[in-house]
């Protein structure tokens, strides 16, 4: 397998230039009234989808940006996200 990731700034590059940053779970929740379960869900819990997921990547050996892509975890290939068709 040879992962490639498409950085919005640098284009399609060798996957080892990047760091994976987790499933996309949305912005940090408001702290007021946050239960331990809800916080744990945000911080630690994953869906572990066997299929396409939206996820964060950091271009560590490149421009230094954080961005999201869609990737199929069963093939390790980037795919078009649902937004792409809109």
């Amino acid at each position: 397998m040879a992962l490639t990731i498409t950085c919005p700034i640098c284009g399609k590059r060798n996957g080892y230039e990047f760091r994976y940053g987790g499933e996309d779970k949305g912005p940090r929740p408001e702290e007021a009234g946050l239960t331990p379960e809800a916080w744990c869900d945000y911080v630690h819990m994953n869906k572990c989808v066997a299929g396409v997921q939206k996820e964060w990547w950091f271009h560590k050996d490149g421009c230094g940006s954080w961005f999201t892509i869609h990737r199929d975890t069963t093939t390790n290939l980037e795919v078009k996200g649902p937004e792409a068709d809109k």
Binding site: M1, A2, L3, G15, Y16, R19, Y20, N46, C48, A50, Q53, E55, R71, T73, T74, T75, N76
Partner: peptide, 14 residues
């Protein structure tokens, strides 16, 4: 291990 989740069990040149 490659640090990104996947179910491929594929090996890498790296």
């Amino acid at each position: 291990m490659d640090q990104w989740p996947n179910y491929t069990t594929q090996n890498t040149a790296h």
